[in-house]
Protein backbone atom coordinates (compact mmCIF):
# COMPACT_ATOMS: atom_id res chain seq x y z
CA UNK A 1 0.00 0.00 0.00
CA UNK A 2 2.70 2.48 0.97
CA UNK A 3 4.29 2.38 -2.43
CA UNK A 4 6.68 5.17 -1.63
CA UNK A 5 7.27 5.24 2.10
CA UNK A 6 10.38 7.40 1.74
CA UNK A 7 8.38 10.08 0.04
CA UNK A 8 5.74 9.98 2.76
CA UNK A 9 8.34 10.19 5.51
CA UNK A 10 10.08 13.12 3.91
CA UNK A 11 6.87 15.02 3.30
CA UNK A 12 5.80 14.36 6.86
CA UNK A 13 9.02 15.83 8.21
CA UNK A 14 8.75 18.91 6.02
CA UNK A 15 5.13 19.29 7.04
CA UNK A 16 6.11 19.10 10.72
CA UNK A 17 8.59 21.88 10.06
CA UNK A 18 5.76 24.00 8.78
CA UNK A 19 5.81 23.51 5.00
CA UNK A 20 2.41 24.21 3.49
CA UNK A 21 3.58 22.66 0.20
CA UNK A 22 4.40 19.40 1.92
CA UNK A 23 1.06 19.54 3.71
CA UNK A 24 -0.72 20.01 0.37
CA UNK A 25 1.25 17.13 -1.11
CA UNK A 26 0.28 14.86 1.77
CA UNK A 27 -3.32 15.82 1.22
CA UNK A 28 -3.11 15.10 -2.50
CA UNK A 29 -1.47 11.73 -1.97
CA UNK A 30 -4.01 10.40 0.46
CA UNK A 31 -7.29 12.21 0.01
CA UNK A 32 -8.94 9.90 -2.54
CA UNK A 33 -8.45 6.70 -0.51
CA UNK A 34 -9.45 8.62 2.60
CA UNK A 35 -12.69 9.77 0.96
CA UNK A 36 -13.40 6.22 -0.20
CA UNK A 37 -12.96 4.97 3.34
CA UNK A 38 -14.90 7.83 4.89
CA UNK A 39 -17.87 7.26 2.61
CA UNK A 40 -17.95 3.67 3.75
CA UNK A 41 -18.26 4.73 7.37
CA UNK A 42 -20.38 7.80 6.76
CA UNK A 43 -22.33 7.95 3.51
CA UNK A 44 -23.41 11.53 4.12
CA UNK A 45 -20.80 13.35 2.06
CA UNK A 46 -21.53 16.78 3.56
CA UNK A 47 -20.96 15.47 7.04
CA UNK A 48 -17.86 13.62 5.91
CA UNK A 49 -16.52 16.72 4.20
CA UNK A 50 -16.67 18.68 7.46
CA UNK A 51 -14.99 15.89 9.37
CA UNK A 52 -12.13 15.52 6.91
CA UNK A 53 -11.65 19.28 6.79
CA UNK A 54 -11.51 19.42 10.57
CA UNK A 55 -9.10 16.50 10.63
CA UNK A 56 -6.61 18.24 8.35
CA UNK A 57 -6.94 21.60 10.06
CA UNK A 58 -6.25 19.95 13.42
CA UNK A 59 -3.37 18.05 11.86
CA UNK A 60 -1.84 21.32 10.72
CA UNK A 61 -2.36 23.02 14.05
CA UNK A 62 -0.80 20.18 16.03
CA UNK A 63 1.99 19.45 13.54
CA UNK A 64 4.78 20.30 15.96
CA UNK A 65 3.62 17.73 18.47
CA UNK A 66 3.10 14.87 16.03
CA UNK A 67 5.51 11.99 16.11
CA UNK A 68 7.49 11.12 13.00
CA UNK A 69 5.55 8.51 11.10
CA UNK A 70 6.14 6.53 7.96
CA UNK A 71 2.64 5.11 7.85
CA UNK A 72 0.97 8.39 7.00
CA UNK A 73 -2.01 6.85 5.30
CA UNK A 74 -2.66 4.51 8.17
CA UNK A 75 -2.39 7.40 10.58
CA UNK A 76 -4.96 9.42 8.63
CA UNK A 77 -7.35 6.47 8.44
CA UNK A 78 -7.08 5.85 12.12
CA UNK A 79 -7.70 9.50 12.92
CA UNK A 80 -10.70 9.73 10.59
CA UNK A 81 -12.22 6.54 11.92
CA UNK A 82 -11.82 7.79 15.48
CA UNK A 83 -13.44 11.09 14.55
CA UNK A 84 -16.39 9.45 12.85
CA UNK A 85 -16.93 7.03 15.67
CA UNK A 86 -16.87 9.87 18.17
CA UNK A 87 -19.57 11.37 16.07
CA UNK A 88 -21.37 8.11 16.55
CA UNK A 89 -24.60 9.77 17.65
CA UNK A 90 -25.02 10.17 13.93
CA UNK A 91 -27.44 7.60 12.64
CA UNK A 92 -25.14 6.61 9.84
CA UNK A 93 -22.55 4.72 11.69
CA UNK A 94 -21.76 1.15 12.33
CA UNK A 95 -24.36 -1.55 12.25
CA UNK A 96 -27.19 0.61 13.47
CA UNK A 97 -30.63 -0.31 12.29
CA UNK A 98 -31.28 3.25 11.24
CA UNK A 99 -28.67 2.68 8.61
CA UNK A 100 -31.27 0.78 6.63
CA UNK A 101 -32.85 4.11 5.85
CA UNK A 102 -29.60 5.18 4.24
CA UNK A 103 -29.34 2.17 2.02
CA UNK A 104 -31.98 3.69 -0.21
CA UNK A 105 -29.69 6.64 -0.90
CA UNK A 106 -26.79 4.37 -1.34
CA UNK A 107 -28.63 2.50 -3.98
CA UNK A 108 -29.41 5.73 -5.80
CA UNK A 109 -25.71 6.48 -5.90
CA UNK A 110 -24.80 3.20 -7.39
CA UNK A 111 -27.45 3.48 -10.07
CA UNK A 112 -26.14 6.88 -11.06
CA UNK A 113 -22.56 5.73 -11.13
CA UNK A 114 -23.34 2.66 -13.10
CA UNK A 115 -24.91 4.78 -15.82
CA UNK A 116 -21.65 6.64 -16.23
CA UNK A 117 -19.72 3.44 -16.55
CA UNK A 118 -18.89 1.58 -19.69
CA UNK A 119 -21.93 -0.36 -20.80
CA UNK A 120 -20.08 -3.57 -21.44
CA UNK A 121 -18.74 -3.79 -17.92
CA UNK A 122 -21.59 -2.11 -16.08
CA UNK A 123 -23.51 -5.27 -15.37
CA UNK A 124 -20.58 -7.08 -13.79
CA UNK A 125 -19.51 -4.20 -11.62
CA UNK A 126 -23.06 -3.43 -10.68
CA UNK A 127 -23.78 -6.99 -9.64
CA UNK A 128 -20.67 -6.96 -7.50
CA UNK A 129 -21.71 -3.67 -5.99
CA UNK A 130 -25.14 -5.06 -5.17
CA UNK A 131 -23.63 -8.22 -3.72
CA UNK A 132 -21.33 -6.19 -1.46
CA UNK A 133 -24.34 -4.35 -0.09
CA UNK A 134 -25.69 -7.63 1.17
CA UNK A 135 -22.67 -7.93 3.49
CA UNK A 136 -22.63 -6.58 7.03
CA UNK A 137 -21.12 -3.12 7.38
CA UNK A 138 -18.06 -4.49 9.13
CA UNK A 139 -17.55 -6.97 6.33
CA UNK A 140 -17.91 -4.17 3.79
CA UNK A 141 -15.37 -2.08 5.65
CA UNK A 142 -12.88 -4.94 5.79
CA UNK A 143 -13.37 -5.72 2.09
CA UNK A 144 -12.62 -2.14 1.12
CA UNK A 145 -9.56 -1.94 3.35
CA UNK A 146 -8.20 -5.18 1.97
CA UNK A 147 -9.01 -4.97 -1.73
CA UNK A 148 -9.16 -1.28 -2.51
CA UNK A 149 -6.85 0.27 0.06
CA UNK A 150 -4.43 -2.65 0.06
CA UNK A 151 -4.00 -2.78 3.84
CA UNK A 152 -2.61 -5.94 5.41
CA UNK A 153 -4.69 -7.98 7.84
CA UNK A 154 -2.52 -6.68 10.69
CA UNK A 155 -3.23 -3.10 9.72
CA UNK A 156 -6.94 -3.78 9.38
CA UNK A 157 -6.94 -5.39 12.83
CA UNK A 158 -5.25 -2.34 14.30
CA UNK A 159 -7.56 0.07 12.51
CA UNK A 160 -10.80 -1.71 13.36
CA UNK A 161 -9.76 -2.60 16.91
CA UNK A 162 -10.01 -6.32 16.29
CA UNK A 163 -7.51 -9.07 16.81
CA UNK A 164 -5.73 -10.63 13.87
CA UNK A 165 -7.76 -13.82 13.87
CA UNK A 166 -11.04 -11.91 13.93
CA UNK A 167 -10.01 -10.03 10.81
CA UNK A 168 -9.16 -13.30 9.08
CA UNK A 169 -12.55 -14.66 10.02
CA UNK A 170 -14.34 -11.51 9.03
CA UNK A 171 -12.79 -11.48 5.57
CA UNK A 172 -13.27 -15.18 5.09
CA UNK A 173 -16.94 -14.89 5.95
CA UNK A 174 -17.32 -11.91 3.65
CA UNK A 175 -15.77 -13.74 0.70
CA UNK A 176 -17.77 -16.88 1.36
CA UNK A 177 -20.89 -14.79 1.54
CA UNK A 178 -20.09 -13.15 -1.80
CA UNK A 179 -19.56 -16.59 -3.25
CA UNK A 180 -22.98 -17.73 -2.05
CA UNK A 181 -24.68 -14.60 -3.29
CA UNK A 182 -23.29 -15.12 -6.73
CA UNK A 183 -24.53 -18.69 -6.80
CA UNK A 184 -28.00 -17.80 -5.60
CA UNK A 185 -30.67 -17.65 -8.32
CA UNK A 186 -32.61 -15.15 -6.21
CA UNK A 187 -29.73 -12.71 -6.59
CA UNK A 188 -29.93 -12.89 -10.35
CA UNK A 189 -33.63 -12.27 -10.23
CA UNK A 190 -33.00 -9.28 -7.99
CA UNK A 191 -30.47 -7.92 -10.41
CA UNK A 192 -32.88 -8.29 -13.25
CA UNK A 193 -35.38 -6.35 -11.23
CA UNK A 194 -32.90 -3.65 -10.26
CA UNK A 195 -31.79 -3.16 -13.80
CA UNK A 196 -35.25 -2.19 -15.00
Amino acid sequence: MEARPDQDTLLWLQFKEGSRDAFAAIYQRHITPLIAYGLKLCPDSDLLKDQIQELFVELWQSRKNLSPTAAVRFYLFKALRYKLIRLEKSRYLRDHTARIAMDGNHFQDSVETSIIEDEASASQVDSLRQAIKALTLRQQEAIQLRYYQGFSNEQIANLMDLNYQSVNNLLHRALSRLKEIFKSPVFHLLLLWFSQ
Binding site: T32, K40, F56, L128
Partner: peptide, 22 residues
Protein backbone atom coordinates in the same frame (compact mmCIF):
# COMPACT_ATOMS: atom_id res chain seq x y z
CA UNK B 1 -13.35 -5.67 -9.70
CA UNK B 2 -13.57 -5.27 -5.94
CA UNK B 3 -11.05 -2.44 -6.07
CA UNK B 4 -12.89 -0.91 -8.98
CA UNK B 5 -16.22 -1.12 -7.18
CA UNK B 6 -14.78 0.77 -4.21
CA UNK B 7 -13.51 3.71 -6.26
CA UNK B 8 -15.33 6.70 -4.81
CA UNK B 9 -17.43 8.50 -7.41
CA UNK B 10 -16.99 12.26 -7.38
CA UNK B 11 -13.90 12.13 -5.15
CA UNK B 12 -11.92 14.77 -7.11
CA UNK B 13 -14.68 17.36 -6.66
CA UNK B 14 -15.09 16.49 -3.00
CA UNK B 15 -11.32 16.60 -2.46
CA UNK B 16 -11.06 20.03 -4.09
CA UNK B 17 -13.92 21.38 -2.04
CA UNK B 18 -12.48 20.07 1.23
CA UNK B 19 -9.09 21.52 0.38
CA UNK B 20 -10.48 24.98 -0.27
CA UNK B 21 -12.15 24.81 3.16
CA UNK B 22 -8.86 23.77 4.77
Amino acid sequence: DLAYTERPAGAPQLAASIWSGI
